[in-house]
């Protein structure tokens, strides 16, 4: 099977510091790959090359086996790559529908925003993702963490993402909302999406991911299947930067 995404030999430096140093990762359809490492290990920088926020200094990205040119977030979206940022990247002063369609608004034939249709579509997708969601006409700053998260996820799902990047999706959530996100990730997997999950929490990775990529100081320590290793093995990789013997 061709991988959905292949990032080959990616390097990014900021003023002499190598944030990402010749790292390669891949992702298959219906798979969740966790990216682990300390703060500053380079996982966010690596993934921002895929989402179009950064451009790598070296290396190639292949989508469906073909070389992809991703220069900005628009390009990434054209490849059906959607990103849910840790900060959620929501405009707090706008309502759910405005955020969901931000940058891709629906318009009437006269070119004006079709507010009613956008709200109707938002209600439709939220009914699927988070049936308890009611605050459609309020600015998202009035929403709880979980509600905000569901708006951010709805934005990715609505536009038929094939590759989803999630940056610590459960960091700010309570247990119930975390469970909701976990179920959602399972559902998206079944639909054949590939998901990159940036995580600090090893338990979340063991629970949600199929494979885990561990990074340290901008380099890849190793890639492991989570059912072949223990929490301690992964912890060892993160802290010591050493691959366990069992890993392939």
């Amino acid at each position: 099977m061709t991988p959905l995404v292949e990032m080959r030999d990616i390097s990014v430096s900021f003023g002499g510091i190598k944030a990402v140093d010749h790292v390669s990762v891949d992702l298959y359809p219906g798979e969740v790959v966790g990216l682990l490492g300390h703060n500053g290990a380079g996982k966010s920088t690596l993934i921002k090359c895929l989402s179009g926020a950064y451009r790598p200094d070296a290396g190639e990205i292949h989508i469906d086996g073909k070389k992809a040119e991703i220069h900005n977030t628009r390009d990434a979206r054209a490849y059906n790559i959607e990103t849910i940022y840790q900060t959620l990247a929501l405009a707090d002063n706008l309502d759910a529908a405005s955020n969901l369609f931000l940058g891709r608004e629906l318009v009437t034939p006269t070119g004006l925003l079709d507010e009613a249709r956008m709200e109707a579509e938002t209600r439709r997708i939220m009914a699927r993702l988070n049936p308890n969601f009611r605050k459609f006409s309020e600015p998202v700053m009035a929403l709880s963490g979980g509600q905000r998260q569901s708006v951010a996820i709805a934005r990715a799902v609505y536009f038929n993402a094939r590759i989803l990047i999630m940056d610590e999706p459960t960091a700010a959530l309570g247990p119930q909302e975390t469970q909701m996100v976990a179920e959602l990730i399972d559902e998206l997997k079944r639909q054949g999406l590939g998901i990159f999950l940036i995580e600090h929490d090893i338990h979340a990775v063991m629970k949600l991911c199929d494979r885990a990529v561990v990074m340290k100081n901008g380099q890849r320590v190793g890639t492991v299947r989570v059912d072949e290793v223990t929490d301690d093995d992964i912890l060892g990789m993160i802290i010591m930067g050493r691959k366990p013997e069992t890993a392939v």
Binding site: N72, T73, T83, A91, D92, N93, L102, G103, R104, L113
Partner: peptide, 20 residues
């Protein structure tokens, strides 16, 4: 769209940028 982007950028410039 122009107006929507003005308000979005004012609310969260990073979010606006990341939305393309």
């Amino acid at each position: 769209r122009f107006g929507r982007y003005i308000f979005a950028t004012g609310g969260n410039p990073d979010a606006a940028e990341l939305s393309g």
